[in-house]
């Protein structure tokens, strides 16, 4: 297990290098120039040149990349093109918001998706199973931003049980933090819960067909023991994979949902950076985003280890 972790962490280095190089190259191919945004419409060619010099844009792209990489390995992802805000500070300010939404969305997805999938799998062919499949299909096809826009009307505007916009850090108040992410988490978790329910149902049905389940039943074990001790544990492997995928999907979904709730998260930072062609910020966002996704995948691998002894021993 430790060997697996070490190899994953070592593998992270070339991955980040490749991602950073590709991002750097692609960002330079995007039409437009940050100088247009900073200098406005009345700038002269001399002003362009001078700003390019200040921002290091006049150097060849390889030189720019090497300079960025040299600083990045020392923990300095650069400075915003518009002011002296450090990219690292901007990322660290916004990441907790997006991670809160992602975790909240995942919590909602697991809370709804796993029990619904287990129940539907155990009662295959029943009305409840069919209803669960139908609801899951509908749930999966609902765009989370649309669900968010609908939910905020009764919860945030009419009854005002949760704030309509904004984020409260858990370090300020746990209760207010939960309130501030509730609607966004439900909106995000809805489609993820549907995917999870479908996957869990399929996994349970598959496991229940296995010989060892028949053996366990023929040994006279109760339905509860067979279900909870044997079936669920083995069915959890594909479910954990799905959770891993869904976390990555939720991170992407959070980028859009943040706009609806006026949350200053990683998504807002990314969208802003793209709109304003703030290259250092874009580069930092992509690198940190990659890092988060890789760490989530490592977390999934660790979870495999807990449920699957074969992974632990390998």
């Amino acid at each position: 297990m430790i060997q697996l972790l070490v190899s994953r962490i070592i593998g992270l280095v070339p991955l980040l290098l490749i991602v950073s190089f590709l991002t750097f190259g692609m960002l330079h191919m995007v039409p437009g120039d940050v100088r247009d945004r900073i200098l406005g419409t009345d700038a002269t060619a001399e002003q362009y040149e001078a700003l390019g010099e200040k921002l290091g844009l006049n150097d060849p792209i390889v030189v720019q990349y090497a300079r960025w990489l040299f600083n990045a390995v020392q923990g300095d992802l650069g400075t915003s093109a518009y002011n002296s805000q450090k990219v690292t500070d901007a990322v660290l300010d916004t990441l907790p918001v997006t991670l809160s939404l992602t975790l909240g969305g995942m919590f909602v997805a697991i809370l709804i998706g796993v029990p619904a999938g287990v129940y539907a799998g155990l009662h295959r062919g029943s009305y409840i199973d069919r209803a669960a499949v139908l609801i899951a299909t509908i749930g999966q096809s609902l765009p989370n931003f649309w669900v968010a826009m609908l939910l905020v009307i009764p919860l945030g505007l009419i009854w005002q049980v949760v704030p309509a916009t904004g984020f409260v850090s858990p370090s300020d108040s746990i209760t207010e933090w939960i309130k501030s992410i509730t609607v966004a988490s439900i909106a995000l978790g809805t489609s993820a819960s549907a995917a999870l329910a479908r996957q869990t149902r399929g996994a349970i049905i598959d496991v229940l067909r296995q010989d060892y389940i028949r053996t366990a039943r023929s040994k006279g074990l109760s339905r509860e023991v067979v279900t909870f001790k044997h079936a669920l544990k083995n069915a959890s492997v594909p479910v954990i994979t799905t959770i891993g995928f869904q976390v990555n999907g939720l991170l992407g979904g959070a980028l859009i949902v943040e706009q609806i709730f006026g949350l200053h998260g990683f998504g807002s930072l990314a969208i802003d950076a793209v709109r304003t062609q703030n290259m250092p910020m874009m580069q930092g966002v992509v690198i940190m985003g990659t890092l988060v996704i890789v760490l989530v995948n490592i977390g999934v691998d660790i979870a495999y280890g807990f449920v699957n002894p074969k992974v632990r021993s390998s």
Partner: peptide, 18 residues
């Protein structure tokens, strides 16, 4: 001064008294 990029989010914040 709160930065709310989306006009709908600003409306929601206004209507809910934020």
């Amino acid at each position: 001064i709160r930065l709310l990029k989306d006009s709908r989010a600003r409306l929601n914040a206004l209507v809910s008294g934020q």
